[in-house]
């Protein structure tokens, strides 16, 4: 008998088949897995200031990361129990679909295609963004109409490419996208002068202008927004329980701002006379039980990262280097879009 090289490989394969033929865990199992491993696995960006980026001490900071922290605090009682998985824009959905991460909190736009056909569900909106353009000031371009025929640098794997096309078609103009597979390459090309404009969500443009440019005044962000970009965390399909938890943790943070509950006063407000506050913080009624959590789930989340307004100010707003205005991300009571369904 001559040797058959494949047989070893095939035996291994057969072994693997036998070992793993059991279907992967689906419905309702994420919470159990999170509890069992004692950590929330959170997909974040590879580095976008204000949303998810590593600071000089090696800690992940930003709005998207705070959502994960709040989640870990609510579910596991410890905001530190998060495993960060940085993902680039093209590869962000696969790990979620495959169950490698529990939540994708990575400045990702909620669209119908993604919601309906890519095996995921968006839980809530944490930032209302829009797509804009950045140009070099010396090009003297002051509005989008002047970009007729211009070459525009884009990063692939985003909704940006499609918006760009839609907008220019609607305006009857032609744009020449120059598409790069990595964020770094697209930035490099724009700053070397390869393109006349760079396009992505305006919050990211602000972050780029603030962090990546020697002199921010050399670049201008054009006033027009060409799209709606609601950003928020997404979870895998088929686990309604976990979906509800992520959704309501985000809403709890928004509700906390509306009710005036902050990181600092949450403890004292536990004995508040306001029943809504009591319900939120688990002073009296146990709302957490309905989610499969305990009474103080929201209290812990707020204690860990503060309410939505505090998170915004710390990462993107007045207390951050980006100094972005609240704009649409203001509470609905103050003319914005942030609105949490009632917690009751």
């Amino acid at each position: 008998m001559k040797l058959s090289p494949l047989r070893c490989a095939l035996l291994v394969l057969a072994g693997a088949a036998a070992g793993f033929a059991a279907p992967a865990a689906h419905a309702g199992k994420t919470l159990d897995a999170v509890r069992q491993h004692g950590r929330v696995v959170c997909g974040v960006s590879t580095g976008l200031p204000g949303f998810s980026a590593v600071d000089s001490k090696g800690n992940w900071v930003g709005l998207d990361t705070d959502v994960c922290r709040a989640l870990a605090a609510a579910v596991l009682g410890d905001a530190g129990k998060v495993k960060w998985t940085p993902l680039n824009s093209q590869q962000r959905f696969t790990p979620l679909q495959a169950g490698e991460i529990d939540v994708l909190s990575r400045n990702t736009t909620w669209t119908l295609t993604r919601d309906a056909s890519m095996g995921l569900h968006f839980a809530a909106v944490t930032y209302y963004d829009g797509q804009g353009f950045m140009v070099a000031k010396k090009s003297k371009v002051t509005n989008v109409k002047q970009l007729k025929g211009a070459e525009i640098c884009v990063q692939s794997g985003t909704t940006t490419e499609k918006n760009l096309t839609d907008y220019f078609r609607a305006q009857g103009m032609k744009a020449k996208p120059v598409v790069f597979e990595s964020y770094e390459a697209s930035l490099k090309a724009f700053f070397s002068g390869r393109c006349q404009a760079y396009t992505t969500d305006v919050s990211s443009l602000a972050a780029i202008r603030d962090k990546e440019v020697k002199n921010p005044d050399d670049y201008a962000i054009l006033p027009e927004l060409i799209s709606k970009e609601p950003l928020g965390p997404a979870v895998r399909r088929g686990d309604d329980e976990w979906f509800a938890i992520v959704k309501w943790v985000v809403y709890a943070l928004i509700e906390a701002e509306e009710l005036g509950v902050t990181q600092a006063n949450a403890e004292s407000l536990k004995r508040s006379a306001n029943p809504a506050v009591q319900r939120l913080l688990g002073g009296a009624e146990d709302m957490g039980r309905l989610l499969g959590l305990d009474k103080e789930w929201a209290y812990r989340a707020i204690r860990a990262v503060g309410n939505y307004g505090e998170i915004f100010d710390r990462n993107l707003g007045a207390n951050s280097p980006l100094k972005l205005p609240r704009g649409s991300n203001q509470l609905w009571t103050k003319g914005g879009l942030m609105y949490a369904p009632p917690i009751r």
């Binding site: 793993f20 992967a24 590869q91 696969t94 679909q97 495959a98 169950g99 490698e100």
Partner: peptide, 17 residues
């Protein structure tokens, strides 16, 4: 490796890019 392996590898085995 990046897009397809995770879809058929068992969870945990495919976790690391």
């Amino acid at each position: 490796a990046a897009f397809l392996f995770p879809l058929f590898l068992p969870r945990g085995l495919g976790a690391d890019v």
